[in-house]
């Protein structure tokens, strides 16, 4: 569904993505892991053009989204993002957060948008809090709302950028439970995470990145049991799995 070929990206003189090649199949959960600063998040952000790559191509169903003339909003609504710091709209209630983009981008009526929003808010267990403002929610609750907000756009792929990294430990589980539920629904997902146990459990493919390179890709069982590269071995040795 998504093909990334020879992708590169610089920030000034710093080369953060070097010749990245990977493909994401429909319905698969793809997880990108690696040390901090390895380029995982940048790669993810390139997938919905929050970052503009300098070279290479990203195709959605065969169409290169980096070509001039492609409307950036059309790509983004197909690949919605869940952020590390939630980024709920602070001036809107939970329900407004979830209904806003469907109304503005997909032109749903208020009624349709609310009906749909409630489906997802129930799914993430936040239906009781629809009239609260984000400032009144815990981190875990915020992230669950953010997931509902992204899902309400019915994206073809859900991008999750370290969704549990900013959470207090006791809230990590509630968010991972929600994400696990989504993986069972067959939603295409690209996940950047440091939760190795979770990555091994839910992923169809693991991509290991370091210093801007995609070092190793494989299925999670093989990757975690016997990584092929020395770099991945060292990485796994340094973390608790």
């Amino acid at each position: 569904m998504i093909e990334v070929t020879h992708l590169s990206k610089h920030f000034g003189n710093l080369e953060v993505l070097k010749d990245i090649n990977l493909s994401i199949e429909k319905g698969h959960v793809v997880t990108i892991i690696g040390p901090s600063g390895s380029g995982k998040s940048t790669l993810l952000r390139c997938l919905n053009l929050l970052e503009r790559p300098d070279g290479g191509s990203i195709t959605y169903d065969g169409k290169n989204i980096l070509e001039p003339g492609v409307k950036i909003e059309d790509i983004r609504k197909r690949a919605c993002m869940v952020f590390q710091h939630f980024n709920l709209f602070k001036n809107m209630t939970v329900l407004q957060n979830v209904t806003y983009a469907p109304k503005v981008v997909n032109h749903l009526s208020a009624e349709e948008a609310e009906k749909d929003a409630m489906v997802y808010l129930k799914k993430v267990g936040m239906a009781e809090k629809i009239n609260e403002y984000p400032s009144r929610l815990s981190g875990g609750q915020k992230q669950r709302v953010a997931i509902a907000r992204a899902m309400a756009m019915h994206p073809e792929v859900l991008l999750l950028d370290e969704p549990t990294s900013a959470l207090d430990p006791e809230m990590v589980k509630e968010v991972l439970d929600v994400i696990r539920d989504l993986t069972k629904m067959g939603i295409t997902m690209v996940l950047v995470t440091h939760e190795m146990g979770f990555a091994r459990e839910v992923s169809d493919t693991i991509h290991f990145m370091d210093e801007g390179y995609l070092i190793e890709s494989g299925n999670p069982k093989e990757f975690f049991a016997s990584p092929k590269t020395e770099r991945a071995r060292r990485f796994l040795a340094h973390i608790l799995v």
Binding site: E73, R76, F86, N87, K90, V104
Partner: peptide, 15 residues
């Protein structure tokens, strides 16, 4: 205004 607010809106395809 937090940059995350801009990014969240952009990432949902809002013009």
């Amino acid at each position: 205004v937090d940059k995350g607010q801009w990014e969240a809106a952009m990432s949902l395809g809002v013009p």
